[in-house]
Amino acid sequence: MNKRDLVSGLFWLAIAIFIFTKALELGVGTLSTPGAGFLLFCSSILFGLLSIVLVIKAILHGGGQKGIAELWHGLTWSNVVITVIALVLYCLVLVKVGFIIATTAIMVVLYAVGRMKAWVVIASALVTVALTYIIFHYALQIEFPRGPFRW
């Protein structure tokens, strides 16, 4: 059994059902006067049917035994987890603490993922943020969140 296709197929099937219900809520209309949900209705049906085919294929044929855990076997997946958490936290604090503090913090984390020496990490982060601010704020006149210190 191909567990990868099975899990992803079931996930997509759930999405298809959800969108199908939303399309009905929006109003499918008629063929001569199609409503706002017409394309969503058609594409969700096709998407759902294809998801079912994928699930059936995964159970019947599968293309060999394909587990999910093997996808991350022998890889430093912790780098990905740390990076994604850092990116999400960046979004959450950007407006509150301002661009300079939030970006310096995330750059420290991102450079640290590369296993560099502490002083290199901090220096690289500071230089990167300074250059980014000069280019984007002063040269391209992009307004960034200023945070509590107004810079």
């Binding site: 990076t83 990116l87 960046y90 970006t103 995330i106 750059m107 991102l110 450079y111 993922v113 590369g114 296993r115 560099m116 690289s124 990167t128 980014t132």
Partner: peptide
């Protein structure tokens, strides 16, 4: 290790 953080920063 230098390049990828920069790409992420440009994306952000």
């Amino acid at each position: 290790k230098l390049l990828y953080p920069l790409i992420l920063l440009f994306c952000l």
